[in-house]
Design a protein around this nucleic acid. Structure first.
Ligand code: FES
Ligand code: FES
Lengths: 151, 151
DNA sequence: CATCTCGCAACAACAAAAGTTTCGAAATCC
DNA sequence: GGATTTCGAAACTTTTGTTGTTGCGAGATG
């Protein structure tokens, strides 16, 4: 089962977007992510619909943030990506009438619900500005700055 | 992405196994789960290697529990299934050098670690006997017992 | 008007899980 | 001993969802 890494990737991209001048084209972002521009547009479409970024056509066009990082949480982005399923495991409903199955699924379900709530709360509590700060701290700590031709 | 329901299914099966006389054949279990016996053997193989069930060939053969439900936790079965990945979401490592990516992944990673710990703890705290008790309580509550030709 | 860039739809490639087929080996029944 | 039941394991096919690709259209810029 290939695991979804869109949230991680989009957070990475958005923070970079905040630090560069002008718009970031889908092409450039695709290079950053080792993918292609169509996939980028597909993924960014949700963020655009959520009002976090704006896209502009033509020369000098591309993607720009429409609000400060401090006003975007990790949860916002997760939701903008369509609230993707968090867990790789689910309960089976082979015999909905079976009380054994119901007992099992109720125990499993409540465990997953609690874990999901914990994740959602954590996501809601972290803004992209927090992540950018964390980045700055890491940057201040090291002496040899890594160079990246893409940002 | 089809989600893994082996844990839920195996818990269901094991509790039924505790309540029936004699061994349960792969064929019968497959009918319960709406699948086929080869898939059942494949899945049960982990539980056999973990020492939770035993398989017997020939007439009257099949699968039997090798220890009481009170000595098996949900976590045991999860592990016996090969510790399958819990989350459908993972972090991307496109640019391991990139401090932005590192900051993002560290925040995401710690959230997932906490959620995983919560789940594991919960799994460890519930024995199959607890689930069987829960089943008995549900059974006592209803008046019209569902009939199932498979158990 | 040439070029850049996104938007969208259709199609292909890929990966992982599940299902199927087939054979073999061990246990039981007669 | 021979037929039958049942698991064990390997090889193969099917299915399903994601990702990647191609192609065309539309709007913006120079
Ligand atoms: S399968 Fe649980 S009752 Fe038939
Ligand atoms: S992509 Fe984050 S630095 Fe190059």
């Amino acid at each position: 089962m290939r695991r979804d890494s869109r949230l991680s990737r989009m957070l990475h991209v958005l923070i970079h977007m905040d630090r560069i001048d002008g718009a970031a084209t889908s092409d450039r972002i695709a290079q950053m992510l080792g993918t292609n521009p169509v996939v980028v547009r597909r993924t960014m479409a949700g963020l655009r619909d959520g009002g976090y970024v704006h896209s502009e056509k033509g020369h000098g066009g591309g993607w720009v943030l429409t609000r400060p990082l401090s006003e975007i949480t990790m949860l916002d982005i997760h939701r903008a990506l369509g609230n993707p399923e968090l867990f790789a495991i689910s309960v089976a409903v082979d015999h909905p009438e079976c009380l054994v199955e119901q007992a099992v699924n109720s125990a499993l379900g409540s465990a997953f619900d609690a874990a999901e709530q914990l994740l959602i709360d954590k996501f809601a509590s972290v803004t992209l500005a927090d992540l950018a700060d964390e980045f700055d701290q890491r940057m201040a700590k090291i002496t040899t700055k890594p160079t990246c031709e893409l940002v």
